Amino acid sequence: MKGFIFNPVLMKELKLRFRAFKSFSGLMFYLAVLIIFVSGFLLVFTNFSVSGFFKPSQSFLMFAVLSVLQMALVMFITPGLTAGSISTEREKQTLNILLTTTQTSSQIIIGKLLSSVAFLILMLMAGLPLYSMVFLFGGVSPWQFMTMFFFYFVTLIAIGSIGIMFSTLTKRTIVSMIATYGSMIFLGGITLFFFFIGFYLDEIMTVQQNTQNLNSFSPFTYFWACINPGVLIFTLLYPELRNTLQLAVGIEFPNWIVYLIFYVLITVVCLTIAIRKLRANMKTNR
């Protein structure tokens, strides 16, 4: 374990990433978006008056929208940080030199991933002062806050693994980014589309069979909803939505468990493919 965390690849990537101007400009953009949102939210709900009141229910609404916005930013920023990890080395013709070192393929891939994850965690931590305003006005429990950040972490690790895998499999960074962002579109949008299509077809079949009083059993429809990050955020924020979803598909299994299992499997599979294909691709290119 020590070899994965304290390895030269990780140390070099951390120094390069945290010293680069574009990293801190990206962090500034990220915080600027959150600050503009929070400021606008407070101004709207206090009627643009310094004497306005901000209720705990409105504070929870701000937390909910801020959580959705932060998940969207995580899904948008993560591919840009990880999709070029290996392909950039290949384009600069430095990958051959990196592979001649004593570092194993696992250390190279894990080092690249951890350096990107470290910067993303820094971004999440930098936004904590804005979340402190939610606790100032009340309406949100610490458990909800910790649960939300835990699933942020699981999601960004999985997305980062997808980016690392495509960066290893492809020779061009632009192709890797397109493939990674395409995966994000699938996980964030196409899965939701499949859910609505499946739910609509289930309703038609229920009406045709005259079984309105029976709960339909739709595991595939439920699966598409479970792996969607947006659905996860809303069901964590509003438990009644989770109960409604489970009642509609006839499955009582918690959707967050399916989400966790699915994204952990994605992480393991993508990292395994990246590790095994790293040196295989070099042999082919030679």
Results as ranks from 00 to 15, higher is better:
1 M>K: 10
14 L>K: 01
16 L>G: 13
18 F>K: 04
21 F>E: 07
34 L>I: 15
37 F>M: 06
42 L>I: 12
43 L>R: 10
44 V>C: 07
46 T>E: 09
47 N>F: 10
48 F>S: 07
54 F>Y: 14
55 K>P: 00
57 S>V: 09
57 S>T: 08
58 Q>I: 12
63 F>V: 09
63 F>C: 05
76 F>T: 13
76 F>V: 10
77 I>K: 03
81 L>C: 02
90 R>L: 03
96 N>A: 12
97 I>C: 00
98 L>H: 04
101 T>A: 02
109 I>M: 01
111 G>S: 09
117 V>M: 11
124 L>A: 10
126 A>V: 07
131 Y>L: 00
131 Y>V: 00
132 S>Q: 02
132 S>E: 00
133 M>I: 15
134 V>Q: 04
144 Q>L: 08
146 M>L: 14
149 F>E: 04
149 F>R: 01
155 T>K: 07
158 A>F: 02
165 M>R: 04
169 L>V: 12
172 R>D: 12
172 R>A: 03
177 M>H: 01
188 G>E: 07
190 I>L: 15
191 T>L: 09
192 L>E: 14
200 Y>C: 08
206 T>L: 09
207 V>E: 06
214 L>E: 06
216 S>N: 13
222 Y>F: 14
226 C>D: 09
229 P>A: 10
242 R>D: 14
250 G>W: 01
257 I>S: 01
258 V>S: 04
261 I>M: 08
265 L>E: 05
266 I>L: 09
266 I>K: 05
267 T>H: 10
272 T>W: 07
273 I>T: 02
274 A>S: 14
